[in-house]
Amino acid sequence: MRSDLLQRLLEDRAAKRPVVLATRLTDGVQKLLYQTDTEGETGLLEAVREALASDKGRVVATSDGEWFLNVFNPPLRLIIVGAVHIAQPLARIGALAGYDVTVVDPRTAFASEDRFPGITLVTDWPDEAMAALAPDTRTAVVTLTHDPKLDDPALQAALRSPCFYIGALGSRKTHGTRRERLLAAGFDEAAFARINGPVGLSIGAKSPAEIAISIMAQITEKLRT
């Protein structure tokens, strides 16, 4: 790969622009291709759009040779609502798993740089924060505050979005009262069923780090299976 092409690829990654690095396997010719590209071999551009949509690289045969398409989509996102103790290990494990992590909590005593070094913190109210973050199909949302004033607006925004995972901390009883509030707010049973609660896989987790592992394991399961 030429250094200038590598530089441009890294710039696209930094700008979170979805991009495909196409390599012709017969001679090593390379170019960067984007979803919106219209000039070039139609078969190749179509394959680029498919590869970006499925987030999977592939080898494609076109009229001008065999190309390998390497997909560079922006990272998956994890939005954690509630800068509580469990959020600390969860933010770290999420980052380790490759997610772009954002922690939302208007309580600045919780959402502090000291408690979350290097993690993006948003101290707006969850409804405003969620509107700005706009969860998409590559986003997971987890609420951890235990406080309906903070959790519910975030859950409602998550339910109105196409995010691939929603989890809410709280016991079965808490989840039951949550169900009643969300149904009263106009959501149906199918919508409520999207919420994983009590959150996380059942592995007997006790400590904040163990609970974070069980949550991350459940997010992974939803993503991959």
Binding site: F72, A95, L96, G98, P117, G118, I119, T120
Partner: peptide, 11 residues
């Protein structure tokens, strides 16, 4: 720990 330094294994 920063956000990026933890992503040792992604491309």
């Amino acid at each position: 720990m920063t956000d990026t330094s933890s992503r040792e294994f992604d491309h």
